[in-house]
Amino acid sequence: MKNKVSNNDTEACLSDNVCFALYTAGNALMRAYRPLLDQYELTYPQYLVMQALWLQDRASMTQLSRATRLDMGTLTPIVKRLESKLFLQRLADETDERKKVIALTKAGFALQADALAQKNTLLEKVSMSEQDIESLRTLCLTLTAELNQK
Rank of each mutant, 00 (worst) to 15 (best):
M1I: 00
M1S: 02
N3W: 00
K4F: 12
V5M: 05
S6C: 05
S6Q: 07
N8R: 04
N8Q: 05
T10D: 08
E11K: 09
C13G: 09
C13D: 11
C13M: 07
L14V: 08
S15W: 01
S15A: 07
D16H: 08
N17I: 01
F20Q: 03
F20N: 04
F20H: 04
A21I: 11
L22C: 06
L22T: 06
T24Y: 15
A25R: 09
A25L: 15
L29P: 00
L29M: 14
A32E: 13
Y33F: 09
R34G: 11
R34M: 15
P35Q: 02
L36T: 04
L36E: 04
L37Q: 09
L37N: 02
D38M: 05
D38Y: 02
Q39K: 03
E41Q: 11
E41T: 15
L42G: 11
Y44I: 14
P45A: 14
P45Y: 03
P45S: 15
P45I: 08
Q46W: 10
Q46L: 07
Y47F: 15
Y47T: 10
Y47W: 14
V49I: 12
Q51D: 09
A52W: 08
L53P: 00
W54A: 05
D57V: 09
D57F: 08
R58Q: 13
R58V: 12
S60M: 08
T62H: 05
T62C: 01
Q63L: 14
L64Q: 11
L64E: 13
L64A: 12
S65E: 14
S65D: 11
T68W: 04
T68S: 05
R69S: 04
D71S: 06
M72T: 06
M72I: 07
G73S: 07
T74Q: 04
L75H: 04
L75W: 10
L75R: 06
T76I: 02
T76W: 01
P77H: 00
P77E: 00
I78H: 10
V79H: 06
V79P: 01
K80H: 10
K80A: 12
E83G: 13
L86Y: 10
L88V: 09
R90H: 00
R90Y: 00
A92Y: 00
D93H: 00
D93C: 00
D96S: 07
D96A: 07
E97D: 04
R98F: 13
K99W: 05
K99V: 08
K99S: 13
K100W: 08
K100R: 15
K100Y: 14
I102H: 05
I102L: 14
A103K: 12
A103Y: 07
G108F: 05
F109Q: 11
A110P: 13
A110T: 04
Q112V: 13
Q112C: 15
Q112W: 05
A113N: 04
D114M: 07
A115P: 11
A115C: 15
A115W: 01
A117T: 01
Q118N: 06
K119G: 01
N120E: 06
N120D: 01
T121I: 01
L122P: 00
L123M: 02
L123S: 02
E124D: 08
E124K: 02
M128H: 03
E130I: 07
E130S: 14
Q131A: 15
E134V: 03
E134M: 10
L136M: 13
L136K: 04
L136P: 03
R137P: 07
L139Q: 07
L139P: 03
T142L: 15
T144D: 14
A145I: 12
E146G: 04
L147V: 10
L147D: 08
N148S: 14
Q149W: 02
Q149Y: 03
K150L: 11
